[in-house]
Nucleic acid binder design. Sequence first.
DNA 1: ACATTAATTATGT
DNA 2: ACATAATTAATGT
Length: 238
Amino acid sequence: MNELPARRTLPRLDESLLTHLPPFSRLEPRDIRTILDQATSRRYDEGVAIFDEGAEAERFFMLLDGYVRVVRITPTGEQVTALHIPAGQLLGIARAIGRDTYPATAITATDSVALSWPMRLWDSFVSDYDGFSTESYKTVGKRVSELNNRIVEMATQQVEQRVANAMLRLINQTGRKVDNGIEIDFPITRQDLSELTATTLHTVSRLLSSWEKQGLVQSRRKRITVLDPHALVMLSQR
DNA sequence: ACATTAATTATGT
DNA sequence: ACATAATTAATGT
């Protein structure tokens, strides 16, 4: 097998990939062009790690398609899902929070496509491109405040409310409209939901079963559809 | 009000 | 056939 003369034979990435995405949306086409020419595009199968917690943060990423699960590994080796990231968001931006290692592991929840750049470009992106830093700090800010909200939930709410809130967040951020409701757009297990809400998969299973009987949700293996979001909101406010 | 344990069943390769 | 996911009941704190 002889080596492909890689890189150069790859088709140029289309500018429309980035023009609508917040960190890049206010940039001139020529800026987008040079940014894209520095990017590497790569496809990932479902369930593979894009980067690992604690590893040297060599690159930062823009998720173009798919969903990514951000997981922390506990000392005992168990995975705990921290949050999910949908296409269109930056990922692995360790530099933005002043780190040189990744703070968590990123696992694809579906087949995915991501662009990436060497981390040394981060500083030049921030200084050269107006709006890049403010926009990317906005996304970090949103993630931090979501985590804060969840900490408050854990401390104050009961399990049913927490799970209801988690489901609402999931359909807001990663929901896909289907004929009878809104489906979480990637495979998610009871175990995942229980990790997001600090409970057990059994409790989540029981809750989903009872909600299903009440016509609130519909679920099959790794797929959950919310039929009545408003009822979930009601539930979450008790 | 919830977790844990355990047994059982369903589902996807 | 096998591993993984989900359900369900019983028991414990």
